[in-house]
Nucleic acid binder design. Structure first.
Length: 924
RNA sequence: GCGCAUGUGGCGUAAUUGGUAGCCGCGUUAGACUUAGGAUCUAAUGUCUCAGGACGUGGGGGUUCGAGUCCCUUCAUGCGCACCA
């Protein structure tokens, strides 16, 4: 019997499927363990060899945990809503669901071949009505909730309404868009429309006029994490800022909890740091500056309250609503002109253009501490969306204010002793204050830190301002002017939005005749026939964004077929949250923020038991492509080998990596690859054509895509799995290089050779030798530790060493081989299962076998090698019994015949023996 | 600019966490078996070398009997944030 991966793998995959081997059920008698992969978006290109990296790692961990007696939940599904399917639908007219389902079938087929232990009974798709019913449901809950800042949790809007009816806004603590103030009488006098608009200021999912990232090319708005450097992440199209009336999620209300929660979870520091940056907490003060000869007060935010005596002007963002309020009639024209010039620029142009520009409004503000009048300017270096959209400018200690002051020749007052502001500002937050004394507050001589505290205290007492924490995190824009997404369960009655009844869920996505916006510019749902409620009210035309469906999917896996709830209390209390989550870093500021927000919201409402969704998170590295090149001599059909290309004028051309092996080109395959190369000539080195190579993104256009199906076909899934792990540390990005795969494949054949020689089974019941026991126990210890620490690459090396040692010891003992297979099974489940049955004669699956314990007794060394060193340099080695006491080792080292030579007549000052390590003899 | 990672043979990497640097694999070289080798097996393989050794973990310094590992400094690469007041 020889190793035949095709036969073995199809047979066992079928067995596992038919016997539901990996089915997970609630079982209170066993501890649970939830292992989750970030579910894929099923793209048309199928899986490439980089996708399964994280899946293999999580699969190994799942199998390991199962062998340790845990009840493991390890599900898989599809993030099925997305732009590519819709773009394809626009081009072809084919319903995105059709292409999505085809892609899912292809993904499933590819995944199945790798032998994962997913419980496919729990498969979910975000575009399935049975799934998106719960996405819509959660949205409705958010509409019906507000965030109570005193209780620090989401509460029902109904309670807020009751409060308004009785006391107006007095005594409410609610996260909101703008601070409102009205009495119960005001509230009760409001029309339904006014009440609705007012409540939108508090709801967690709300309709609001906000500056959005509008992408004309995609015809939709995008969330901040879907935009990078003024371009859309999908497609790379320019994005502009536009004021639109959109559904938003009040994620900002959860900023502090999202920050605090990071302390409680086991994620990498860099990922936590990325989220901290994204949330962008900054402590400071909000202060009001009176505008001279006016009732208007300009509110600003600063982290440098201490620099108030150095404020020489104020600046507002061009979009700020203060602009119209303060501009004097004679400056109106100039200000309008400036703002228009800014509006014409796209976000990207504004970002690239760092030149200083601005315009004086004609107004003056009064510094509340000095009473001095300072000019108020408008400039685009101040952002409308951060803080209050206006700043106090301290040119001496802020580089942007400094540049502005220099450009418009405004005064600069240094506030820190010894700083030189003749060339640049002094931005550091350290030093002693000067020039900072007024009638009521004297900061001179204080350290910056103390000055900040003193100023905060002063302005709070005087009512000029208050201490304030600002966050960079903005509310998430939740509407997309797109077809392929969840419809909003919202209809409009006289222009007032209303939620549908929960019994109307799922609100099914209606068919449309085209996936483009309507002639009047409405989203594609504007084309749907009868898109109205039974009473005839129009239904919302926007759909939800991609992150909606992926925000709570991990909860749905716990109870995927439940029609009564997102997840039953019983299932949620058993499975709780994800113990191990594996996926890429690219979701750091998107999915991983939204999921945490969404989960906290559901936690507040009592629907879930844990406040964080993902306890431990591992980011697998990205697998890049390794492209191969051939070198064509200019204007010819002759190709020179890599080593000879220096002698010719050549153009490098990407060549399909699948016709290259170990960088050697299969020249016949190359001629057959494309018609142009049919008559290609080659200049060879040592009879071979050597290709050049480079690391690039894995993509079709580089001809460097390696399909896992091809690897499975040629080497088998077990080799693919072992090799992907062997490639290097899981969290490190690395190029895919098939060159080393033969070594791993050879290992499996050697392993097979421990069990079978031809048709003869070699397994015996003899007592294993000490060496064999040592080899296997070393392996168990190593692999156990490696899996716990996600060092799968070194485990593969350990398997190779162990098999070599057992081969050398000629060990075919059942006892040893059984343990070998159990620890190998997570990595190479098919071959382990096959040998478990055919060579060891078991009739139950190896998945039921328990993980072995190692015995330290077997691992004990019977002798220890010491390196004896002389003045720090290792000079000779001595071998002594492992249990020899330390002073005897020293004596032996000193008495060693060659030591006399090294000591060279000098006296011994010190001997250092580190047990099991090195003997050091220091002489003087 | 701020923050977070990472630098080890020809290549991917390893090092019991301060104790003989280079495990395992690829590649290369030699040999065996073969009609044949892109199969299999055996051995060698960090660099230099007067063959005794010397030098070696991006560079420079430090702590230590001893440093890839700790400290300072510097360079390079990758990632995140960024007119965020």
């Amino acid at each position: 019997m020889n190793y035949n991966h095709r036969d073995i793998e199809t047979r066992w995959q079928q067995y596992w499927r038919e016997n539901n081997t990996y089915r997970a059920e609630i079982d209170p008698s066993r501890p649970k363990f939830y292992v989750l992969d970030m579910f894929p978006y099923p793209s048309g290109a199928g899986l490439h060899v980089g996708h399964p990296l994280g899946y293999i790692a999580s699969d190994i961990y799942s199998r390991y945990k199962r062998a340790q007696g845990f009840n493991v939940l390890h599900p898989m599904g599809y993030d099925a809503y997305g732009l590519p399917a819709e773009q394809y639908a626009i081009q072809t007219g084919q319903h995105p669901e059709v292409t999505t389902m085809q892609n899912i079938a292809r993904y499933r087929n590819q995944l199945d071949k790798i032998g994962f232990c997913y419980d496919w009974n729990r498969e979910i798709k975000t575009c399935d009505p049975e799934f998106y019913k719960w996405t819509q449901w959660a949205f409705m809950k958010m509409v019906e909730s507000y965030y109570d800042t005193r209780l620090d949790k989401a509460m029902p809007v109904a309670a807020l309404v009751k409060h308004f009816e009785e006391k107006g806004t007095e005594g409410i603590h609610a996260a909101c868009g703008e601070e409102l103030s009205f009495t119960a009488a005001d509230w009760n006098a409001m029309t339904e429309k006014q009440k609705s608009d007012t409540l939108m200021n508090y709801r967690i999912a709300y309709l609001g006029n906000t500056m959005v990232n509008w992408c004309p090319e995609l015809g939709t708005v995008l969330a901040n994490d879907e935009v990078s450097e003024g371009l859309s992440i999908r497609g790379g199209y320019p994005v502009e800022q536009k004021l639109m009336y959109q559904w938003c999620l009040r994620v900002s209300a959860y900023a502090q909890r999202l920050l605090d929660g990071l302390e409680t979870i086991d994620w990498t520091d860099s990922l936590k740091e990325t989220q901290r940056n994204w949330i962008g907490r900054s402590e400071g003060a909000e202060m009001r500056f009176k505008i001279a000869d006016s009732d208007v007060e300009l509110e600003i935010f600063t982290t440098r309250a201490d620099t108030i005596f150095g404020v020489t002007f104020m600046v507002m963002a061009p979009e700020s609503e203060y602009v119209d309020m303060v501009t004097t009639p004679d400056r109106r024209e100039a200000v309008k002109e400036y703002i228009d010039s800014i509006k014409h620029k796209t976000e990207r142009e504004r970002m690239i253009d760092k030149s200083v520009s601005g315009v004086f409004t004609g107004a003056y503000a009064v510094n509340p501490l000095t009473g001095k009048k300072i000019p108020v300017w408008v400039s685009d270096y101040v952002l409308a969306g951060y803080g209050t959209g206006a700043i106090m400018a301290v040119p001496a200690h802020d580089s942007r204010d400094y540049a502005f002051a220099r450009h418009f020749d405004l005064p600069i007052i240094p506030l820190i002793e010894g700083c030189d502001v003749s060339e640049q500002s002094f931005d550091a937050k350290s030093g002693k204050m000067i020039n900072s004394a007024g009638e009521e507050l004297d900061l001179n001589g204080m350290d910056v830190k103390d000055a900040i505290a003193a100023t905060k205290k002063f302005i709070t007492e005087k009512g000029i301002g208050k201490v304030k924490v600002n966050y960079r995190l903005r509310d998430a824009i939740f509407s997309r002017q797109r077809y392929w997404g969840e419809p909003f369960p919202v209809y409009y009655k006289d222009g007032v939005p209303h939620l549908m009844d929960e019994s109307a869920l799922p609100l099914l996505l209606p068919p449309v005749d085209s996936y483009l916006p309507t002639e009047t510019g409405e989203p594609p749902l504007g084309r749907a026939k009868d898109w109205v409620t039974p009473e005839g009210y129009p239904i919302e035309l926007n759909t939800m964004p991609g992150f909606a469906g992926s925000s709570a999917y991990y909860l749905r896996y716990m109870d995927p077929r439940n029609n009564e709830a997102l997840v039953s209390r019983e299932a949620n209390e058993y499975w709780r949250n994800v113990d191990l989550y594996i996926g890429g870093t690219e979701h750091a500021t998107g999915h991983l923020i939204y999921s945490r927000f969404w989960n906290k919201f559901l936690y507040d409402l009592g629907y879930v038991a844990e406040s964080e969704p993902f306890k431990k998170l591992i980011n697998q590295g990205m697998i890049q492509g390794r492209s191969n090149f051939v070198y064509r001599i200019k204007d010819s059909n002759t190709f020179v080998s890599h080593g000879l290309k220096g002698d010719y004028d050549v153009t490098p051309i990407h060549v399909d990596v699948n016709i290259v092996s170990n960088d050697i080109l299969d020249t016949d395959a190359f001629r057959a690859w494309r018609p142009d190369y049919k008559d290609a000539e080659f200049l060879l080195e040592d009879g071979r054509y050597v290709c050049g190579w480079a690391v690039e993104k894995m993509s079709k256009s580089m001809f460097n895509v390696v399909n896992p199906d091809d690897i499975v076909e040629r080497y088998g899934a077990d080799t693919l799995r072992l090799y992907e792990m062997f490639l290097g540390p899981l969290e490190q990005s690395k190029p895919w290089d098939t060159n080393g795969i033969d070594g791993v494949n050879r290992f499996i054949k050697k392993l097979w050779g421990l069990f079978f020689k031809g048709d003869d089974c070699l397994v015996n019941d003899e007592k294993p030798t000490a060496e064999a026991l040592k080899a296997i126990h070393k392996l168990i210890k190593k692999v156990t530790g490696d899996i716990e620490s996600f060092s799968f690459n070194t485990s593969v090396a350990a398997f190779m060493i162990c098999v070599n040692e057992l081969n050398a010891a000629n060990c075919h003992s059942r006892e040893v081989l059984e343990q070998l297979l159990i620890v190998l099974a997570p990595f190479a489940p098919h071959v382990a299962e096959e040998l478990w049955h055919s060579a060891l004669g078991h009739d139950t699956t190896i998945n039921d076998a328990r993980w072995p314990e190692w015995n330290e007794e077997y691992l004990k060394e019977n002798s220890v090698n010491y390196a004896v060193s002389f003045n720090g340099k290792a000079r000779f080695n001595i071998q002594v019994p492992a249990d020899m006491p330390r002073d005897e080792v020293e004596k032996l080292a000193l008495g060693h015949e060659s030591s006399a030579k090294w000591l060279d007549g000098k006296t011994v000052r010190k001997i250092i023996v580190v047990p099991g390590k090195i003997v050091n003899i220091v002489v003087g």
